[in-house]
Design a binder for these strands. Structure first.
Lengths: 330, 330
DNA sequence: ATCATATATGGTATCGATACCATATAAACG
DNA sequence: CGTTTATATGGTATCGATACCATATATGAT
């Protein structure tokens, strides 16, 4: 592995000059510059990132923390972040927190040790008070998930509205018994809390009191969706429609519902959340809340780059539009 | 950010002794060891990985190259690799090559510069002759995709068998006109080549000559699947069954087929490949070839760890079982 | 008691790159 | 034409950690 010294020797110049060429500094003659470039090419030289990082340089690497990459929502989000990053010369390190506090902290530590220039968090496991100190080591940005107490830029969607328009749609379809599948009902703040409020608000406006027995907490997977349908079927008094927290839960519900001979949407109307590719492959096609994942990723990465270039980016919250996509499951 | 020097100062010992404690070297008294540990804790000290890497230490980081993380096949594969890695104290860096030769090389360069200890490649863009030199810088392992000329361990599935049993199944169902959607038909070697041979072999055994007009090359996405159905519908002489290269193509075909009033499997039988969660959510549920993604990821990471610990791992190919999952689309 | 060996600790060079200071030449100005 | 200013290049300390050598003490063997 050639080093900067080898390049210097081959080109007959000093390490310093070579370094200048690498970093595009001023005051290097065309002639010498070409000599250096030629030598670099000949040796197939790449600067050692560890050495650069150690020296306190930018790493041109940013980290993205996701709970689970197998969740399509997050893989799409990462993808769009990565596209923007690559265009701007940044590498992306993807971390799975697996919803583990320790793992999350391990990753944040990379910021402290200058392994990454900045971090985009798409989920938050630890209390903000624990995460906050890391912002001293480099920019952190929240994307998708958020906390009110956070003192960093946030790129997010209007989750309140998402739930509100979804439930509203069900009400307009004539439903009065509307169930709800959510990730966390008792969240103090953030995504789930806002969704819960949207759900409740829509019902309240229609003069309906949410029925606790139709509210299912901690639902995430396809399997969870199946279980929910089983629970519903075992009830005397059943909901006629369900608003869910993701297309996957909705998909799981559909499988089980059809298995049990329920007709969708007649016996049970279902709304998803995300508008993943899956949504149009289900039968009937899934009515869902479209989250502009791409835009969110793009905005997040662009903002992070701004933060890296100019440390004086305003701490603000960017809220992107969210919309209802009506298909055949409602 | 505290350094090893700060720890040394606080504990009243030398950097050397602190380093010994960090790396669990022999010849450190319990007493001093505790002093150091206490100081490390007090300062919330983490060794700087850049400095360690620069010094030529192990990085306890491995890289995984995937073509696209939004492809569920790869996100599941990465997930299982990551689980094993984390259990063994390794970090995983995920790279998207986006099927770009340059990007792939950029990532392989991280091996040369000792940013990662080893690399798992789940796809290959460049010629092996170009990749081969990188093996001198650290272990590389192929997982999923493969080339015959490769001189490294390979963890793969019997793709030939996968296609063979799929087509065989269609033949048993009485189909004689069997189409084929593949990624790359003209592949010199590797996954697609083997699948193609499996397809042809099954047909040949049944005395059927593959019909070129029913073979669709370069198919990958849901959208591709839709297009294939459109093409089929425009034909005078149509296939009655299609073997596809992924559940997504199959899903896309189903959407369009239903859209056009085709009944599945009666008017058109479809087989997927992968057995993703999606497969059971389609209606009718998708008959598909199950790839043991988890096992493949686990085996790959375990083997890579062996290579890292003991440089004398045999260069061999691990072939994992693949099976047909019959559902309702055939 | 003497010398070899095991245990315990510290000092310094080094990994590869860049920042900063020093210096040399060329151009610009009054 | 002398002096300032822009351009061009090199030398050396430094980032944080570890390897290696040196040294000091404790332990054991003869």
């Amino acid at each position: 592995m050639p080093t900067i010294y080898d390049v210097a020797k081959l080109s007959g110049l000093s390490k310093t000059t070579v370094s200048r060429v690498i970093n595009n500094h001023s005051y290097v003659s065309e002639e010498k510059k070409n000599l250096v470039l030629k030598a670099m090419k000949e040796l197939n030289y790449t600067p050692n990132p560890s050495a650069r990082k150690l020296r306190g340089q930018v790493t041109t690497t940013i980290g993205v923390i996701v709970p689970r990459i197998v969740n399509p929502f997050f893989s799409y989000l990462v993808d769009s972040i990565e596209q923007v990053a690559y265009k701007n010369g940044y590498h992306v390190l993807i971390f799975q927190s697996n919803e583990d506090k320790e793992k999350e902290l391990a990753f944040l530590n990379l910021l402290k040790t200058k392994q990454v220039d900045g971090i985009i968090m798409t989920s938050i496991e630890n209390d903000w008070s624990i995460i906050e100190p890391f912002t001293e080591s480099g920019p952190i940005l929240l994307c998708n998930e958020y906390v009110n107490s956070a003192s960093v830029p946030i790129v997010r969607l209007d989750q309140y509205k998402g739930a509100y328009i979804g439930v509203k749609h069900l009400l307009e379809k004539g439903h009065r018994k509307i169930g709800y599948c959510t990730g966390g009902l008792f969240a103090e703040e953030g995504k789930d809390k806002d969704r819960n409020q949207g759900y409740q608000k829509a019902l309240q406006e229609a003069g309906i009191e949410p029925d606790p027995k139709w509210i299912f907490v901690n639902q995430h997977s396809i399997e969870d969706g199946k279980q929910v349908v089983k629970k519903i079927l075992s009830m005397e008094d059943r909901p006629t429609a369900i608003f869910t927290g993701s297309d996957e839960i909705a998909g799981g519900m559909m499988i089980e519902a059809k298995e049990c001979g329920l007709k969708i949407p007649n016996d049970l109307a279902i709304i998803g959340f995300d508008d993943q590719p899956l949504a149009q492959m289900l039968d009937p096609k899934l009515t869902t809340i479209r989250q502009p994942i791409d835009q969110m990723g793009i905005k997040a990465m662009e903002t992070l780059i701004d933060m890296l270039n100019d440390s004086e980016v305003k701490v603000e919250t960017f809220e992107l539009p969210i919309e209802l996509v009506v298909r055949s499951s409602t």
